[in-house]
Every structure is written in C-alpha cells, then in structure tokens.
C-alpha cells in the first residue's frame, strides 16, 4: 500500500481507538457515582441569584444537567457558552440545565449576565461543596456535571470540561 493510504488507515485506527477510549471513559465516568447520589442531588434546595430558595425537584420529569462551576475556574467558564446554546436548542425537547455555583453571589451574577446564561443558577457555597462530594466527586474538582434522566436516574457524571458533542451523546437517548 502506498504511504498516504497507510497514514489514512493509521488515522482511522487511531480515531477508533480514541473513540473506544472515550466510550470507556464516559461509562467508567470520571467519578464513581455514589449510590443515591442522584436522589440526594434532586432533594437539594439552594438559593438562586435573588436569594430565593429553589428545589431541584421542580425540574423532575425533564432531562436535567446539573453543572457545578465557579467564576474562578477557567475550564468551567469555557464550557458555559456551549451549555447556553444547548439549552436554547434542546430546552424545548425537555433538556434543563441547572448551574450550581461554588462561589459568592455577586461574582456569579456578574458572570451570569456576561455569559447571558439562559438557565437557572443556584448559589452553592458551603452546601454546594457538600453536594459535590455527596454526588461522588470527592476530589472537589470543577467543572463537574451530573446528568439525570426524566425518571430521576443518574445517566452520567463528568469531571472536567464537556462540549456540545460529548454532552449531546449522553442526553440525546434520554430526551
């Protein structure tokens, strides 16, 4: 076989291997989901940016993407514009993003306005940190995203950055 063909084949092999690796990675997930983690998360009530307490249970029946983030976390900020786009596109199909900021309210407000965040943001602070750990992220790393299906079952957790493609692959079958 000529060289370009071999390179192409090599690339195909590399991409397949990557895809397999990625698949494993997604399913073995970044953090070991704690049994009952989704229930604990869905039972949480946290203040929104106006200080009104919001129960996560109000979004039950939708596919919920709970994203733990902070304004001091660059990889968190990087993925938010994609979440905003996905909320706009898939919101009508039953997808609901909820951001939980491990941060103080004023900073969160500033960023939420700047990024034109179109989904609810709750302020986590200490309780948010507890919640992050209870859902199985004992390292306390951000961004951390938990995906729950319409029946409240955990269908994915992701520590570190997500993108539209990766997240769509997780949520699409549940929508």
């Amino acid at each position: 076989m000529k060289r370009p063909g071999r390179i192409a084949l090599f690339l195909v092999a590399a991409v397949s291997a990557l895809a397999a690796g990625y698949g494993l990675h997604s399913w073995n997930s970044a953090t070991a989901p704690v049994s009952g983690g989704a229930e604990q998360l869905m039972a949480a009530t946290l203040p929104d940016m106006e200080g009104n307490f919001q129960a996560l249970a109000q979004w039950r029946g939708k596919v919920i993407v709970v994203n733990f983030w902070a304004t001091w976390c660059p990889p968190c900020l990087k993925e938010i514009p994609e979440f905003v786009r996905m909320q706009e596109k898939l919101g009508p199909h039953g997808l609901q993003f909820v951001g939980i900021a491990i941060d103080n309210r004023d900073k969160v407000r500033e960023f939420a306005a700047k990024f034109r965040i179109n989904y609810p943001i709750l302020i986590g602070e200490m309780e948010g940190i507890e919640l992050v750990r209870r859902v199985g992220n004992d390292r306390g790393g951000l961004p951390f995203t938990v995906i729950v299906d319409r029946k409240g079952r955990l269908i994915g957790t992701e520590l570190g950055g997500l993108n539209e493609q990766k997240l769509t692959a997780i949520v699409a079958p549940a929508l």
Binding site: A70, C73, P74, I102, V132, R139, G141, L142, P143, G160
Partner: peptide, 8 residues
C-alpha cells in the same frame, strides 16, 4: 490540573 479541572 492541566487536564482542565480546578479544585475547590
């Protein structure tokens, strides 16, 4: 961490 995770 360089992998794109920040710690609380």
């Amino acid at each position: 961490a360089d992998v794109g995770v920040c710690y609380i």
